[in-house]
Design a protein around this nucleic acid. Structure first.
Lengths: 305, 305
DNA sequence: TTTTGTCATAGATAATATCTATGGTAAGTG
DNA sequence: CACTTACCATAGATATTATCTATGACAAAA
């Protein structure tokens, strides 16, 4: 098995035709034919049914393609990482839960980098994908929280995937509400206070939907549930529907606007927010810079409480 | 970049020495030297510091190795899948939450296969790893549940990873308790009934610890928490400590023994238990057989309720 | 029947991987 | 201080592999 063979097979499958695939790969058709035959012989499988009308993927071939694509996806990462440099395109990938401070840090990093050609990814996604992205090196860093409930589970998963966790700060749970919500008058809130209002959470399983909210707010406590994908939508609903959402309370006015406010929630819990890195890999300069910004921003945020 | 180069680099890093690595790889030392130099030249990186004393991994090299290992891990899957056949060793991998019916099906599949050389893996693990295993083809099938809370999140994750979900059956939540527990006298239980007793859950984030228990039993409801890794331990504690655990109620006497009993839990929730498969891959004969057994077993279990 | 479009095969050729032999260098050894 | 040993690097020869061109076989369309 060689990478070329895998690439050839995938291209042929995409084109559905050896002749065209050969053109696309800039090789002669017989070369492609033999390359594929050799791979098939090596594993004793038949990936394609050939006829003078063209080729057709077998079910065996379909399965093999699944494996082949997995390998090629990983090689693409190497190519992008080490030849992306060559094109002068600066690349950076973060996977994080929905924290405004993370977005802020991301934006600041981008400004600081001063690059004119770049490709930056801010992946606000669920815990599962954050860990998966960092474990498989699709992101160089991930941001998530631990609390007393998810800690054991998450730490074990991180160990299994050879990832390190570094705490940034500890936050007490806060409730985000609209400025004009009836709850805005109170100084701090209890779960009981929240009961009549709709609870907002991210479908993608951010902090509150994956662990946090489910811990603190049981089904018994919450009759009205709204699940969204987008932070802007979430904020709209906070305001328009007098909803609430439970977060770390790390709020930033410039980013969230003046219509959203945070209130302390009176429950016995905490969130330890930090970042995860692949254990075996030294952080890139850009990643180190990003960590620096995170530390600075969250150090500042801490003073808000 | 070729797979050979990646393999060479990894072997050299393991040996810490080009000469020995060459012996291990059954090639001459200069071949190895040039192979590595060419890869380094291709990406403009220095993986090893050379000296007449030996070699030393650079930090750049350490990073590269992370990527290289990811690729090779994937290729190993292909080798194992398609040359394992050659050794006549039958292989099968399941990732599942802690369900006795899944273990039962696994055991029956093994018996039915009648193979004298085999390698079967029953991975009872957390939701994260189940999805990850199947998505990256480390397992051919996964077993997990959906309920109204995790459904959106899980379905999105499955979509993202091109996995299909097929329901097996729907179960109402049950409580597992020891035969001699004070709760054993009641016909059915409420959350209130459970309050004084220790709640048991799996650390590895099976159904109850990842989604289920956290939904149904909030922190408010549970003062005593025991988290374990092993089903046998969990059952011991159910009996010894009058603990309880919330499950699908799919219990099997032969497997769990006569000391554990299931009671209906009076809450408005359900669990839809099913299996996940990679979208692009046709199930192997063994997988199809396993699905058949699952369907038969869970069809039978359903009649218990 | 002819043309066209498909994949397969054969033999030549170019590219490349690997080999053997040798060189350079530094550390250990009598 | 020579001498040996244990490294990795380089050069040139050789074996292997990849790819090419040319051609064949086959079936569907014109």
């Amino acid at each position: 098995m060689t990478l070329k063979q895998l690439q050839y097979i995938v291209t042929v499958a995409e084109e559905g035709n050896i002749t065209n695939a050969a053109k696309k790969l800039f090789i002669a058709q017989p070369s492609l034919t033999t390359a594929i035959r050799e791979l098939e012989a090596e594993y004793g499988i038949t990936v394609f049914m050939r006829s003078n009308k063209g080729i057709k993927l077998t079910s065996e071939g379909e399965e093999f393609l699944g494996y082949a694509r997995q390998v090629l996806d990983q090689t693409k990462l190497i190519e992008e990482r080490y030849t992306g440099k060559g094109t002068g395109k600066l690349k950076f990938f973060v996977s994080a839960q929905h924290y405004s401070f993370a977005v802020e840090a991301f934006v600041e990093l981008l400004k600081q980098s001063g690059a004119d050609k770049y490709e930056f990814h801010m992946r606000e996604t669920q815990t599962f994908n954050i860990i998966d992205d960092v474990a498989h090196l699709r992101s160089e860093i991930g941001i998530l929280y631990l609390n007393k409930f998810n800690e054991e589970v998450i730490r074990k998963t991180l160990r299994d995937n050879n990832l390190s966790f570094t705490p940034l700060f500890t936050a007490k749970p806060h409730v985000f509400i609209g400025k004009n919500s009836p709850l805005a008058k109170k100084r701090s809130l209890t779960l009981e206070d929240l009961k009549p209002y709709p609870r907002l959470s991210y479908e993608q399983g951010s902090h509150n939907s994956f662990y946090f909210a489910e811990e603190i707010l049981s089904t018994v406590d919450c009759d009205k549930e709204l699940i969204v994908l987008d932070r802007a939508t979430l904020f709209n609903m906070l305001i328009g529907l007098n909803g609430y959402t439970i977060c770390s309370g790390v709020i930033n006015e410039e980013l969230n606007g003046p219509n959203i406010i945070a209130k302390k929630l009176n429950v016995d819990d905490y969130m330890e927010i930090g970042y995860i890195l692949p254990g075996s890999i030294h952080p890139s300069p850009l990643t180190s810079e990003f960590i620096g910004i995170l530390e600075r921003l969250t150090g500042r945020s801490k003073q808000h409480h």
